[in-house]
């Protein structure tokens, strides 16, 4: 099995992880695009090794309010998958999906119905991400139900950060940003495998 140390990953391993982000997010973006019936573009995935101190600033600053959807992963790949979007983007997405049933008020809290729609969006697109990852690596991935929180980015990112804290002083993120032409609908996918799962993923791809 490929020996993986987060601090000592080589370029080849980074490239493979970036490609995983590419394929996973590519499928997820397609699913999203079909759901909202609009063209959604994806940026080139980034693989970042970040210090915890920097992590909070990832999505518009630690105090930026974001909608976070988190699934825990089991079986061949252990870890977490997160889908994050800014609150304004989540509002737009709900409006596109629910039409007249969505609230017009920008600053209002989400209704039960809107929260449920957001959770379903998260479910479908993380599902698309994970199923393509599973096909690519030929590994079984069992995801939990999606958990959702709307809060400060720093607080939400503390959850995966703590998982990384157990194995390293840094966090490795496979991060993909997407947006539609008007940048109304944008967000981030973050895949957070455990250290052992990194080895398994790389091994399954012949590294």
């Amino acid at each position: 099995m490929a020996e993986v140390k987060l601090e000592q990953m080589d370029n080849m391993q980074f490239d493979v992880l970036r490609e995983i982000g590419n394929i996973g997010a590519g499928n997820a973006t397609t699913a999203l695009s079909q759901m909202i019936n609009a063209k959604v573009d994806m940026k080139v995935p980034k693989v970042d090794l970040l210090e915890f101190k920097e992590l909070g600033d990832l999505i518009g600053g630690a105090e930026n309010i974001v909608v976070g959807i988190l699934l825990t992963l089991e079986e061949d790949i252990d870890g977490m998958m997160m889908f994050l979007m800014e609150k304004g983007a989540a509002r737009s997405m709900v409006r596109v999906m629910m039409g007249a049933y969505a609230s017009e008020d920008e600053s209002a809290d989400f209704s039960e119905m809107e929260l449920s729609a957001l959770q379903e969006i998260g479910n479908i697109i993380t599902g698309a991400y994970l199923s393509s990852l599973s096909t690519l690596t030929n590994m079984t991935i069992v995801a939990s139900i999606p958990y959702m929180a709307i809060d400060m980015a720093g607080a939400i990112l503390s959850v995966p950060a703590i998982e990384f804290g157990k194995i390293s002083d840094k966090a490795l993120l496979i991060e993909t940003e997407f947006g539609d032409a008007t940048e109304v609908v944008n967000g981030y996918f973050i895949l957070i495998p455990t250290l052992d799962s990194y080895s398994s993923i790389l091994t399954s791809l012949g590294l």
């Binding site: 915890f52 920097e54 909070g56 809060d151 980015a153 720093g154 939400i156 950060a161 703590i162």
Partner: peptide, 23 residues
């Protein structure tokens, strides 16, 4: 003060940490 970080502070300064979640 960032995540997994510490610092000291004397008046008139103040000290802060942003977005504490499970930390």
């Amino acid at each position: 003060v960032g995540m997994a970080d510490l610092n000291v502070c004397l008046p008139p300064d103040a000290i802060t940490t942003l977005g504490l979640g499970s930390c």
